[in-house]
Simulated assay, not measured.
Amino acid sequence: MIAIQALRAYNLFYFSLLSVFISFLPVYLSYRAVSPSDIGLLVGIGSFIGILSQPFWGMISDRRKTIKKVILLTLGLSLLVGFVLFQSSELWLLFLLVGGMYFFMLPTDPLTESLNYRVAEQYGIHFGSVRTFGAIGFASASLIIGFTVDQIGMDRLYWVFAVYGVLTYLMCLVIPDAPVSSKRLSAADLRRFLTYPATLRFFLLILLAAIPHRTNDSFLGVYVQSLGGSTGLIGLAWFVAATSEIAFFALLPRFLRTGREIKMIALASAIYVIRYALCAVVSDPMLVIAIQLMHGITFVTFYTASIQYLYRIIPEEWKATGQTVLAVIFFGISGIIGSFAGGWVFQEWGGAALYLMMAGIALLAFLYSILMWKREEREAETLAGEA
């Protein structure tokens, strides 16, 4: 299956490129003397732009009935903007370029996930067998980039971004496009989907769990630095987190069954609470790095179960758009809240207080997921009784 091998290679390089943006953008901004509150403002504004751009590109993908061609466009523009971003230092220009990256780069992620899921379905393989290579890319790149930047300097990060970017684009040229639905798109279907009570409850759960997750994305590197860690250790933290994904992408198909998604989300939310609480109480950057081993079971379980649940309830012709709505909440709205609030809390009270706040929000997500779990059980019993 050459098409699957090409898709796996694309995932390897794409998520390597994404690690430069997600893992090292806040560190680069800190290097350019941007304060934690301004970092939060930059990422928050970027996330707001992402809220607008992700549905836009998702709708284009659905209407044009192609994912690959849209990725080629957004990825190519991301490479141009990012190459300039990682050479810039003026705050006004950073605001402009970070906004550009969120407009083009952020929508590429849900489109890639949708491509992975649908091609995997077409070839009869599990989504995780493709997405694992993304985790490998993110992990290896995080480690390589962290220690490389220690040697060449943060001011040359743009060359690292360019190398991974070119490799990603070349692989994108040879991947297969996703199979598309022949059904006509209907705005009424989407409105019904977005206003259906079960969907609204599900999206609220996603938001609660995603706020601390996205806050961690924005401030993990800054927190490690505040504890005395080097850029190399920041890369090691992301390497440990991403490496833990690999094992869980391989193991999850054995446990994640249709109809059990909310249970798995509840489990992930509980472990999120423990993870962030532990980060709040330690003061050694190496211990923070070790705690990132929990990232695999939290993120992989939560996100994969969320995608599976979404694809179970969404109309076929809106799958790419539905994936985008999920990404808007997970990476957009939650990113705005987490970045703005996280930057302010970090600057006023420090990183430990921030992680304690994140544990509290994750606890709310856990409690709410339990309520959804029990509600689903009652509904299933009611349906069984009627039958």
Rank of each mutant, 00 (worst) to 15 (best):
residue 2 I to N: 08
residue 3 A to G: 02
residue 4 I to K: 00
residue 8 R to D: 04
residue 14 Y to A: 08
residue 21 F to N: 05
residue 28 Y to D: 06
residue 32 R to S: 05
residue 33 A to G: 05
residue 39 I to Y: 05
residue 41 L to A: 12
residue 47 S to Y: 08
residue 50 G to Y: 03
residue 51 I to H: 06
residue 55 P to E: 09
residue 59 M to V: 05
residue 61 S to Y: 01
residue 61 S to A: 13
residue 65 K to H: 10
residue 65 K to A: 09
residue 67 I to K: 10
residue 69 K to M: 13
residue 70 V to N: 04
residue 71 I to N: 02
residue 74 T to P: 02
residue 76 G to Y: 09
residue 77 L to K: 03
residue 77 L to C: 12
residue 78 S to C: 05
residue 87 Q to L: 12
residue 89 S to H: 10
residue 91 L to C: 02
residue 92 W to D: 10
residue 94 L to T: 04
residue 101 M to E: 04
residue 101 M to H: 01
residue 103 F to V: 03
residue 106 L to V: 13
residue 110 P to M: 07
residue 114 S to I: 12
residue 116 N to C: 02
residue 120 A to G: 08
residue 122 Q to V: 15
residue 123 Y to T: 03
residue 129 S to W: 11
residue 134 G to K: 01
residue 136 I to R: 08
residue 140 S to R: 00
residue 144 I to C: 01
residue 147 F to M: 15
residue 148 T to Y: 10
residue 150 D to H: 08
residue 156 R to E: 08
residue 157 L to K: 06
residue 160 V to N: 01
residue 164 Y to L: 14
residue 167 L to T: 03
residue 171 M to D: 02
residue 172 C to S: 09
residue 176 P to N: 05
residue 177 D to W: 03
residue 181 S to V: 15
residue 183 K to Q: 11
residue 188 A to Y: 12
residue 191 R to M: 09
residue 193 F to Q: 09
residue 195 T to Y: 07
residue 202 F to D: 00
residue 203 F to C: 14
residue 203 F to W: 13
residue 213 H to D: 07
residue 214 R to I: 04
residue 214 R to E: 12
residue 218 S to Y: 03
residue 227 L to C: 06
residue 227 L to I: 01
residue 228 G to D: 06
residue 228 G to H: 10
residue 229 G to H: 07
residue 235 G to Q: 12
residue 242 A to N: 11
residue 243 T to L: 13
residue 246 I to T: 11
residue 251 L to K: 05
residue 254 R to D: 07
residue 255 F to V: 00
residue 256 L to E: 08
residue 262 I to H: 00
residue 262 I to Q: 01
residue 263 K to L: 14
residue 263 K to N: 05
residue 266 A to K: 10
residue 268 A to Y: 00
residue 271 I to F: 08
residue 271 I to R: 07
residue 279 C to R: 09
residue 283 S to L: 06
residue 292 Q to Y: 12
residue 293 L to T: 03
residue 300 V to P: 00
residue 300 V to Q: 01
residue 304 T to H: 12
residue 306 S to H: 02
residue 308 Q to W: 11
residue 311 Y to C: 14
residue 315 P to I: 09
residue 315 P to M: 10
residue 317 E to A: 08
residue 319 K to Y: 11
residue 322 G to V: 07
residue 323 Q to D: 07
residue 325 V to H: 03
residue 332 G to F: 04
residue 336 I to H: 03
residue 337 I to C: 10
residue 343 G to C: 04
residue 345 V to T: 06
residue 349 W to I: 11
residue 350 G to V: 14
residue 350 G to T: 12
residue 351 G to I: 14
residue 353 A to W: 07
residue 355 Y to A: 02
residue 356 L to I: 05
residue 356 L to R: 15
residue 360 G to K: 08
residue 361 I to S: 03
residue 364 L to Y: 02
residue 364 L to S: 10
residue 365 A to C: 12
residue 366 F to E: 13
residue 374 K to W: 06
residue 375 R to V: 00
residue 376 E to D: 13
residue 379 E to S: 09
residue 380 A to S: 12
residue 381 E to L: 03
residue 382 T to H: 13
residue 386 E to Y: 14
residue 386 E to A: 15
